[in-house]
């Protein structure tokens, strides 16, 4: 028992034999902002469901705030807030009614509940819309309301499954800013998301899962250091030269002339080169290409990002769903009653 969330050898096999989670172990300390990342189908949502007592584990152990997820489910549910991947609000109820109902289901009532709802409406900036039905809210407002409903009972731990997916950048920034404030007030946050820059900025530690197993965990900077290389992206003026492919010519040249390059991969505009001390390498590359008459249209260096970490461990780039597709879904989905 070291953290507020303790998971050891946790496994879940569904009825149809699918092994969604294959013996993962991790822990989250009290007050931590913990990122839980992975490609689609990696087992993130399954893990969240087990930790929030919505799903029974197959084997291993898991506890939240010292309570066992199987035997002390009721105690866990009193101190956690859970936001699902889909925005869930009752569209026939007003924003205030949605929040009040959640509070009532958390056994709150009377003046204390009303005050708490008013306070939260202010925080998530929904005071003006509080008495309008949630069905008339925009996507961003619904998401903020959904988040607020999970906070009415002042939970100790917040589980968030993709809280900002499908939102416009402004709403997204507002949610992240709000999560940061909550965390500063001492709430432990367990989050899955596809927005790696925010994870990098806010999460103190993170774990990457793939195919039901944890493939990496640590602080963002530890994980980035593991990559150990900067990436230099090269764009070429012409894709062919002297009847040959520019990329392969350039690749040949780089491999011949430079030590310390750990990897070269094709990119949309040309090549991406991974090397230590990328900054020092740039002028040399430019000179060498100039001599070889390979025309460069662009060159850029960046230190490793979590995106690179993710790519290294899962072999996939994280895919962020576009806002436009979310709007499309919203327009044609049936109105919920």
């Amino acid at each position: 028992m070291t953290g507020i969330i303790d998971v050891s050898q946790l496994a879940k096999t569904y009825g149809d034999g699918t092994k969604a989670v294959k013996g993962i172990s991790f822990n989250v300390s009290e007050g931590e902002f913990f990122g839980f990342l992975g490609p689609n189908g990696a087992g993130k949502s399954t893990t969240i469901k087990i930790l929030t007592t919505l799903l029974r584990k197959t084997s291993g152990s898991a506890s939240v705030a010292g309570f066992d997820v199987d035997s002390d489910g009721a105690k866990i549910r009193k101190i956690i807030g859970v936001q699902n991947q889909d925005t869930v609000v009752d569209e026939d109820l007003t924003g205030r009614e949605n929040m009040t109902l959640q509070g009532e289901l958390q056994q709150m009532h009377g003046q204390a509940l009303n005050e708490r709802v008013d306070e939260l409406l202010k925080i998530v900036d929904l005071v003006d819309a509080a008495d309008k039905r949630a069905g008339f809210y925009s996507g961003g407002m619904k998401k903020r309301l959904d988040l607020a409903t999970t906070l009415v009972h002042d939970p100790k731990i917040l589980f968030l499954d993709e809280p900002t997916t499908g939102l416009d950048p402004q709403s997204r920034a507002a949610i992240w800013a709000y999560l940061k404030r909550l965390n500063e007030q001492g709430i432990t946050i367990f989050i899955t998301t596809q927005y790696l820059e925010e994870v990098d900025r806010l999460c103190r530690r993170l774990a990457i899962v793939d195919l039901g197993e944890i493939v990496a965990q640590g602080t963002p900077s530890e994980l980035k250091q593991e990559i150990g290389a900067d990436s230099i992206s090269l764009g070429f003026e012409n894709s062919t030269m002297n009847g040959g492919d520019t990329r392969s010519k350039a690749k040949e040249l780089l491999e011949k002339k430079f030590d310390g390059i750990s990897n070269i991969v094709n990119s949309d505009i040309g090549l991406t080169v991974y090397a230590k001390n990328g900054g020092f390498l740039v002028p040399e590359i430019v000179r060498a290409f100039d001599d070889a008459k390979i025309g460069l249209s662009s060159i850029g260096v960046s230190s490793p990002t979590l995106d690179d970490v993710f790519l290294k461990h899962t072999g996939k780039r994280i895919r962020v769903e576009e806002v436009s597709s979310a709007n499309y879904r919203g327009m044609f989905s049936r109105r919920r009653r």
């Binding site: 929030t52 009721a74 009193k78 956690i80 859970v82 889909d86 289901l105 958390q106 009653r337």
Partner: peptide, 20 residues
Amino acid sequence: TSVVDDIKSGFLTKMLATPV
């Protein structure tokens, strides 16, 4: 049908994550 709506929208899940 109303209960099916609650299952599909996730509202039932949301309720189940509370001590209701």
